[in-house]
């Protein structure tokens, strides 16, 4: 196994190993490993999928089949910040289309695109479970709720100018958010550094200030 991913960072290698240990069957580790591979290879590239195939003992075609089923494993390079704008029904009722317009307008890219400098990707997504704070967006899968056209523009500009090293939901909410789905409670110190969910055992988690 290590022979295959020996070029991966030490961190990602040990993440891969611990993920495989978490499951009774190797193939179950497929999706978690795709996140790790996407960290290592920037996105779910062919090379990333080949590595995951050899780690789980299935064919590359099987990995592709699974990876392409889900929306969060990206087949093309994604910017450092991935802005996912929900335009499902409840956000739609609360003017999500304006938020999307604002994000597309400010970044200059359409949904599915990436800015020239490769810094920001924009996508239109279906419901992200923030309907109580509609319209909502996620940046690197960290949620901001209660946006407006203006706040969305400000959020994009902030990402572009301030280049936050860690994307923190609470920080974004404080700066740009409004109505929330529920009381979030205390600040969450953890955030995402890459467009991959910030989840400890695997993913792009890092503690912010």
């Amino acid at each position: 196994m290590t022979a295959v991913i020996s070029h991966w960072s030490q961190e990602n290698q040990s993440a891969a190993k611990s993920i495989l240990d978490r499951y009774p069957e190797k193939r179950s580790a497929l999706m978690p490993l795709l996140y790790v591979a996407s960290l290592e290879h920037e996105y779910a590239s062919d090379d990333a999928m080949r590595e995951v195939a050899s780690l789980t003992g299935i064919s590359a075609a099987q990995v592709l089949s699974v990876a392409s089923f889900y929306t969060m494993f990206k087949a093309v390079p994604v910017g450092r910040y991935l802005i996912s704008v929900c335009t499902s029904v409840v956000c739609y009722l609360n003017n999500a289309d304006e938020v999307l317009e604002a994000v597309e307008g400010t970044t200059g890219v359409d949904s599915g695109g990436i800015t020239h400098d490769g810094a920001i990707s924009v996508e239109r997504v279906e419901c992200i479970g923030a309907c109580g704070g509609a319209p909502a967006v996620q940046v690197n899968y960290e949620t901001v709720e209660g946006l407006t056209r203006e706040k969305a523009e400000a959020l994009v500009n902030w990402l572009r100018d301030a280049k936050p090293p860690v994307v923190l939901a609470d920080e974004m909410q404080q700066l740009f958010g409004g109505q929330r789905s529920f009381d979030w409670g205390p600040m969450d110190p953890d955030g995402a550094v890459r467009p991959i969910p910030a989840f400890g055992p695997y993913g792009s988690v890092e503690e912010g200030r």
Binding site: S59, A61, L64, S68
Partner: peptide
């Protein structure tokens, strides 16, 4: 040879 993508975009293909 496997299913790639999902829903209405599903296709058969190889790696």
């Amino acid at each position: 040879i496997e299913f790639i993508d999902r829903g209405n975009h599903t296709q058969i293909n190889t790696f």
